[in-house]
Design a binder for these strands. Structure first.
Lengths: 194, 194
DNA sequence: GTCTATAATAGGATAGAC
DNA sequence: GTCTATCCTATTATAGAC
């Protein structure tokens, strides 16, 4: 059993050492941002010396950020985006997505990697992809349930915006209720008319 | 004429040197976050040597962050929160607030200081106050227009969440439409029933 | 109030042994 | 694959002249 992004998942293959390290890096970068994490921090959190880190990530910190971005994107695809594309009623798919998101962000207690990587510009590709694919997957699910493309896209954007905004406001205020309410509001907005 | 937070404002008194510096610091910190800005960056942006900076901010970078936080809070109070508390119809107050916010964030092109200061924890007091007072001011305006306290607060939080989230998503996607749509949606949500 | 010069430290990165 | 030791640079901060 491995703990990834705050959600327990089972792995088809035993995780490599590198994957274990990346999970630790993910936690560091999403909490403090790229510029807020030093190699000393990483060394302490992983228990590895700097040279060991350079063995796994030859290009150093930027390399680590890319690995974390790819890890986060893969994790979002598997746990959040793909379930939206499956069969079944829209309400079930939305409920599954929101439950997973709630778990990943630990009810708003943990910030979003996307938000905290933005100022540095590190791993910009995966960061952009996470948002873009989230919107795409949501819009596709709404369309599959009969919502017109333009409206589906608008609702999808609004939902992702609400979740990202709620994470910022929850971090700023330490009020988990803000995140809970945002999840509930997103569910209502996404399912209105179903 | 001075340019502050992207919005032209007139000052009752001539701005002190320190205030001019803080305006530059504000721009740096909100773009790159506390950890993404070095004294060398600040020296280059202000044209001042490091010793001059320590003359104005004896405690160094944390001192600068506090000054920027206080500046941002003051700016938000004067330009965003206070207008919400005045007389007049709700629609006018909301319109004024959204127009000012749109100008300050330059249509979503510039990020929010709050979001980018969060990971470091610098200036946490002012950062928290900006969000809390924004919600309070909005809720008060809604209540003054007859909305029940609980509903007013919920709508106020949703509006601030939508704006903060739209700034994140706009930064991530470089799609200014996301921010424009969020402003429009916030206006509709805040005025529903008026 | 600003400058030049200088510390002192932290940060990122590498070499080479095991 | 990990370690110790080392290197170089950036970064923060201070001293003292003007």
């Amino acid at each position: 059993m491995k703990s990834v992004a705050g959600k327990e998942v089972t792995s088809p293959a035993p995780p490599t050492a590198r994957e274990e390290i990346v999970a630790v890096l993910f936690d560091l970068f999403r909490r403090a941002g790229y510029d807020g994490v030093s190699l000393a921090d990483i060394s302490a959190a992983t228990g590895l010396g700097k040279s060991s880190l350079y063995h796994h990530f030859p290009d150093g910190k930027p390399d680590m950020a890319e690995a974390v971005g790819a890890f986060a994107l893969k994790s979002m695809r598997e746990n959040v985006f793909n379930p939206l594309r499956g069969e079944g009623p829209l309400s079930a798919k939305i409920a599954a997505m929101l439950a997973t998101a709630d778990a990943m962000y630990e009810g708003g207690a943990k910030p979003c990697l996307v938000a905290n990587m933005l100022p540095s510009g590190a791993a910009a590709g995966p960061v952009r992809a996470i948002i873009a694919e989230w919107v795409d997957a949501l819009a596709a699910a709404l369309e599959a349930a009969g919502v017109k493309p333009a409206a589906a896209r608008a609702r999808a954007v609004e939902a992702v915006v609400a979740i990202e905004g709620a994470l910022i406001v929850t971090q700023a205020t330490s009020e988990p209720k803000v995140f809970r309410d945002a999840i509930a509001a997103a569910r209502r907005a996404l399912l209105s008319g179903h």
